[in-house]
Design a binder for these strands. Structure first.
Length: 461
RNA sequence: GGCCCUGUGGCGGAGUGGUGACGCAGCGGAUUGCAAAUCCGUGUACACCAGUUCGAUUCUGGUCGGGGCUUCCA
C-alpha cells in the first residue's frame, strides 16, 4: 500500500519511497533529560511510534531503523546539576529511565537505537573540524560558531529568509558572532560549570552545542542521508534548519528526504510548554487514566493539527475505547478468520490520518456487535480478526477484553463473579428485589453488569 | 513588524466542487422483569462578505477571530 507523508520541506504530501526498502531510516529528536517530560513531549513519541509501526508492517520489522536520541548535555542539565548537587550522569540516567517507562506506558515501542549525546562528542568534534576546514565555522572567545550566511539555502525548510529574522526582536545579542543568525557548534566552558560537563577540543575546553549532536548521531547510526527526520513543529526553526546546514555542509549530501513535524498540544487554546508552566505530566495522568486511553486521546486528532488536551477528551477516549473492547469481548471466541479489512492501514498510509483510522476501528466494532447480535459466526470471526489486526498498527488493544474490563483475575474478580452468578439465580427465580440489590451493590463499586440472552458479564467503569 | 497554520453541528474531529465520515452527548424505536450493554433510526454543521461556477463548506480575494515560529521549547 502506498504511503504518503506530508513533507514539511516541500509543504505537501509526497509519496514515500525509501532510499533502500531493506533499510528504512528514521530519526526523531528525543528528550533533554533534566526533569520529567510532560504529555506534550509525548506527542512526537506516540506519533512517530505509530509511523514506526506502519513502516515496520510495510517494509518488515527488521527493515526499519528508528533512532531517537537522548540529549544528556545542555545548559539546563548543567543548571540542574549545580542546583541539586547531583552529578550530571545521575540526573540524566534517572530522567532518561523515567522517559523510557513513560513511553512504554503509552505503548510506544523502543526505538531501534537510542544514542546518547555524551557518547558521541568525538563524532561531533570531527564534524566541527570538518566544517572549520571547509570554512563554515569560526571561533570566538565564547565558542565555535557556524557561519550561516555562507549557506544560501539556509531557511529552505522553514520557509524563511535571513533578512526576515533580522526584523524580529528576539535575535540573541552576542557581539562575537559575525552574524546574529550564526549558531554555536561548541560552547567554551564557563567558570562555575562541573567537570563532567567539560571536554577537550582543539579550540579549548567546552561542550557541544545542542544542534550538532543530532547531525553527528544521525550520520553515524543512520547514514549521511536519512529517509525521515521528525520532531515537534517548534524544532523546524532553528534546530532542524541548523542540522541541515551542518550536515549538508559536512557531507555534501541531502540530510533527510522527508521532514515531519507534529503540532502542539494545547491547554485552553494555548500551547502546553514548560516555560508557560501549563503542563500535565504523563505520570500524573497515569494515576487516573490507562496508558491506552492517553494514547487513544492523542491519536484522536491529526498529528499536524493542534490538539486541545482536556479531561473531556480523555473521557471520550475512554468511553470509545471501552466500546471497542466490549465489541471485541463479544466476538473473542470466534477465532479462525484472516484479517482482510484495510481501512485502518489505508488511513494511516495517508499521512498518518489517525482520526480516520480510529473511526474505522469504531466501524469494525459496530460490525462485531452487529454480527454478535445476529449470531453470525463468520462475520464475528471476520470482525475479530480485523480489529485485532488494526490494534498493533495503532498501538492499541494490547490487552484482552477481560483484562481491559475486569483487570487481572484475583480474589476480587472471583467475588464479583460469584455475585453475578447469585444475581442470575435470583433472576431465574424471578426474585427481582434480590437481583436488583446485587446490581445496585456492584453499581456502587463502579461495576456495571451487562446481561445477554446467554448470560451476564461485568466490567469496571 | 516578518513568515506560517487555522476557524466544520452541544462537544471532539475527518473530508469533499454536487447524495450530512466517525465517536461522545441528546432524542425516538427494538431488546430487557426494570435497567445497563447492544442494534436501528434521528441533526436544514461547515466564521463573515464578495467573486469564479450550472452548483462552494470545498477554489480565489477581502474582513474578523484563534494559534505557532521569529534562535529555551515536542
Amino acid at each position: 500500500m502506498t504511503i504518503r507523508l506530508f513533507d514539511s520541506a516541500a509543504r505537501e504530501k509526497r509519496v514515500f519511497k525509501p532510499q533502500d526498502p531493506a533499510r528504512v531510516t528514521m530519526y526523531v529528536c528525543g528528550p533533554t533529560v533534566y526533569n520529567r517530560a510532560h504529555i506534550g513531549n509525548f506527542r512526537p513519541v506516540i506519533v512517530f511510534d505509530t509511523l514506526f509501526r506502519l513502516l515496520r508492517q510495510t517494509y518488515g520489522e527488521t527493515a526499519v531503523v528508528y533512532a531517537r536520541n537522548v540529549t544528556d548535555i545542555d545548559d539546563k542539565i548543567i543548571a540542574a546539576s549545580v542546583e541539586s548537587g547531583e552529578t550530571i550522569a545521575a540526573i540524566t540516567q534517572k530522567y532518561a529511565a523515567i522517559y523510557g517507562e513513560d513511553a512504554a506506558a503509552v505503548n510506544a515501542l523502543a526505538p531501534t537505537i537510542t544514542p546518547w549525546a555524551t557518547k558521541h562528542v568525538g563524532e561531533m568534534l570531527a564534524m566541527i573540524e570538518a566544517l572549520e576546514r571547509k570554512g563554515y565555522a569560526y571561533a570566538t572567545d565564547t565558542g565555535v560558531y557556524f557561519d550561516v550566511p555562507q549557506v544560501p539555502t539556509y531557511g529552505r525548510l522553514s520557509g524563511r529568509k535571513l533578512e526576515d529574522n533580522l526584523a524580529g526582536a528576539r535575535i540573541a545579542v552576542d557581539q562575537g558572532k559575525r552574524n546574529p543568525a550564526d549558531f554555536a557548534l561548541w560552547k567554551f566552558t564557563k567558570p562555575d560549570e562541573p567537570d563532567s560537563a567539560v571536554w577537550d577540543s582543539k579550540w579549548g575546553k567546552g561542550r557541544p552545542s545542542w544542534h550538532i549532536e543530532c547531525s553527528a548521531m544521525a550520520a553515524k547510526h543512520l547514514g549521511k542521508t536519512i529517509d525521515i527526520h521528525g520532531g515537534g513543529i517548534d524544532l523546524q526553526f532553528p534546530h532542524h534548519e541548523n542540522e541541515i546546514a551542518q550536515s549538508e555542509c559536512t557531507h555534501g549530501e541531502e540530510m533527510a528526504r522527508y521532514w515531519m513535524h507534529n503540532g502542539f498540544l494545547d491547554m485552553g487554546g494555548e500551547k502546553m510548554s514548560k516555560s508557560l508552566g501549563n503542563v500535565v505530566l504523563l505520570n500524573e495522568l497515569l494515576n487516573d487514566w490507562d496508558g491506552e486511553v492517553i494514547r487513544f486521546a492523542m491519536l484522536s486528532g491529526h498529528y499536524r493539527a493542534p490538539l486541545d488536551w482536556t479531561d473531556d477528551l480523555l473521557e471520550q477516549a475512554k468511553v470509545t475505547l471501552g466500546r471497542i473492547y466490549g465489541a471485541l469481548r463479544r466476538v473473542w471466541a470466534a477465532e479462525g478468520a484472516r484479517a482482510s479489512d484495510k481501512g485502518v492501514r489505508r488511513a494511516l498510509s495517508d499521512d498518518l490520518n489517525t482520526p480516520v483510522a480510529l473511526a474505522d476501528l469504531s466501524r469494525l466494532a459496530g460490525e462485531a456487535n452487529s454480527a454478535a447480535d445476529r449470531g453470525d459466526q463468520d462475520a464475528m470471526a471476520q470482525a475479530r480478526a480485523d480489529i485485532l489486526a488494526a490494534g498493533p498498527l495503532l498501538g492499541l488493544l494490547t490487552k484482552t477484553p477481560a483484562q481491559w474490563e475486569q483487570g487481572d483475575s484475583n480474589d476480587d474478580t472471583a467475588r464479583i463473579d460469584q455475585l453475578v452468578e447469585d444475581r442470575l439465580t435470583a433472576r431465574a427465580e424471578k426474585n427481582w428485589a434480590e437481583a436488583d440489590r446485587i446490581r445496585d451493590k456492584l453499581q456502587a463499586e463502579r461495576i456495571e453488569i451487562m446481561d445477554s440472552a446467554t448470560g451476564s458479564t461485568w466490567r469496571r467503569i
